[in-house]
């Protein structure tokens, strides 16, 4: 990434913090509504010294990763099938078009009813939230490449499966990787939604508890934690993309 872009990104973050700092330091805003920046940092530091904090972070990260991976493992092969077979494409996309417009929170009571408030239920919520979005994203990325190399593979008289293995999978990998990066962010939003409903030892649960006792600084510190994990994961995936797909400019 260009240095100027990194600089402008960092500048906007610093500006946001500055606005927060001045609002809370000089405007006498009730800290129960908006805690000061330095108080939030102190709380975050204090929380980070507790084992419970790390247990919550690791449990939430685990859930989001499993939910996300399950979505990927199911969505990607379905996209491949949709590309090979027109009938299957119609079947898959009719379902996707219907479910895409259904809000995931509407399913949460059903998920609790069917699977309980355990880890599995939370993973299902993340799965529902990301899986449906992954299919059209992956499909679009793959189709762009498919159209580009249609003549190429036609001239080679390749069967569709060979086309998929030799062209579509390696060629779309960096685009799918980028889509996955985006979906991973969504997975976090669905995780918190699922965790707000119950189950101890989670970031969502910690947020609910802090809200109940009006410990807004704790709420903020956990929200910051999610943001930090999000940025770290995103940067890690970006870095890995550069290593894994060097050819991709």
């Amino acid at each position: 990434m260009k240095r100027s872009l990194i600089l402008s990104g960092s500048t906007s973050l610093v500006l946001l913090v500055l606005v927060w700092y001045f609002l809370t330091e000089f405007q006498k805003i009730d800290p129960r509504f908006l805690p000061s920046f330095h108080q939030t940092i102190i709380t975050l530091y204090t929380e980070a010294l507790k084992l419970k904090f790390w247990q919550a972070v690791s449990a939430s990260t685990y859930r989001v990763s499993v939910g996300f991976l399950c979505s990927f493992i199911v969505a990607y092969p379905l996209v491949i099938l949709a590309m090979i077979n027109t009938f299957l494409k119609e079947v898959i996309f009719n379902q996707v078009e219907f479910f895409r417009y259904l809000p995931v929170p509407a399913f949460i009571p059903l998920v609790i009813l069917w699977f309980g408030v355990n880890d599995f239920g939370k993973v299902i919520v993340i799965f529902l939230g990301t899986f449906i979005q992954m299919i059209p994203m992956f499909y679009d990325s793959s189709m762009i490449l498919k159209r580009k190399y249609d003549a190429f593979t036609h001239a080679l008289k390749w069967k569709p499966w060979k086309y998929i293995i030799k062209i579509i999978i390696p060629g779309t990998a960096p685009y799918i990787w980028d889509n996955a990066r985006l979906c991973f962010g969504w997975a976090w939003t669905y995780l918190i939604m699922a965790e707000l409903l119950g189950g101890e030892n989670s970031i969502g649960h910690a947020i609910v508890l802090s809200q109940r006792y009006l410990k807004t600084d704790v709420t903020f510190s956990y929200i910051l934690t999610i943001g930090i994990i999000g940025i770290c994961t995103d940067r890690l995936m970006f870095f890995l993309k550069k290593i894994l797909f060097r050819w991709h400019t």
């Binding site: 580009k148 190399y149 003549a151 190429f152 001239a155 062209i167 390696p170 060629g171 990998a173 797909f245 050819w247 991709h248 400019t249």
Partner: peptide, 13 residues
């Protein structure tokens, strides 16, 4: 049939 299209269609990976 050997084919060299207008756009090179080299596999970038």
């Amino acid at each position: 049939i050997g084919y060299v299209p207008q756009d090179n269609q080299l596999l970038p990976w």
